[in-house]
Nucleic acid binder design. Structure first.
Length: 172
DNA sequence: ACAAAGATCCGT
DNA sequence: CGGATCTTTGTA
């Protein structure tokens, strides 16, 4: 099976996010074992104008990777304990990212990174070329039911962006 | 330098 | 509902 290529990620985050549902997140561990998990829940963070997006504070050391071309990995630590896994989308200088919130068997962004052993060392890696983490298509995802809701845990944002239904969940 | 907050999770 | 736990960021 071939992994998803650059053109999948260099689109608007609102197109990429729901399109990731049902596809496979593939992790090759250091000891050689390969595990594949169907993606079940994602959220879109869209540009400097989106007050829930880290890039709303502008270009910093942490948000720098979101300004790169789509397909890169954005990882950060939250509450001192949990690594959040994101994929950068769109073209250069358009800061967008998809937060991976759930995979088959592991609901919760902090739980899935713990199980997949993903940490700061993945920051900036390219999904198209690295040998530890990538996305593969699903030949049988023609009949997906997708539910949309507001995003989780962003009470600090203003009403306009708090209410955007930019969380996408596979509806079984 | 220092203080504050945070895209979460778990146990009570 | 509160505690864990530490990086990033803003302010001085």
């Amino acid at each position: 099976m071939h992994r998803l290529q650059r053109d999948f990620f260099t689109r608007d985050v609102l197109d990429v996010a729901p399109d990731l549902l049902g596809k496979y997140l593939v992790r090759k561990f250091d000891h050689g074992e390969v595990s594949k998990f169907k993606i079940t829940e994602v959220e879109a963070y869209r540009g400097e104008e989106d007050l829930a997006c880290h890039a709303s504070k502008g270009r910093t050391k942490r948000t720098e990777i979101m300004y790169h071309e789509g397909g890169r990995i954005y990882v950060y630590l939250i509450y001192g304990m949990y690594w959040m896994l994101n994929f950068v989308t769109a073209n250069e200088n358009i800061p967008q990212a998809v937060l991976i919130r759930g995979i088959e068997g592991f609901a919760g962004p902090g739980k899935l990174t713990r199980h997949l052993q993903i940490d700061k060392s993945f920051y900036g890696k390219d999904l198209i070329s690295n040998d530890s983490l990538w996305i593969e298509p699903n030949s049988d995802n023609s009949d997906l039911k997708i539910k949309t809701t507001p995003r989780i845990g962003i009470d600090y944002a203003c009403e306009i962006y708090k209410n955007k239904r930019w969380r996408f969940v596979l509806d079984f």
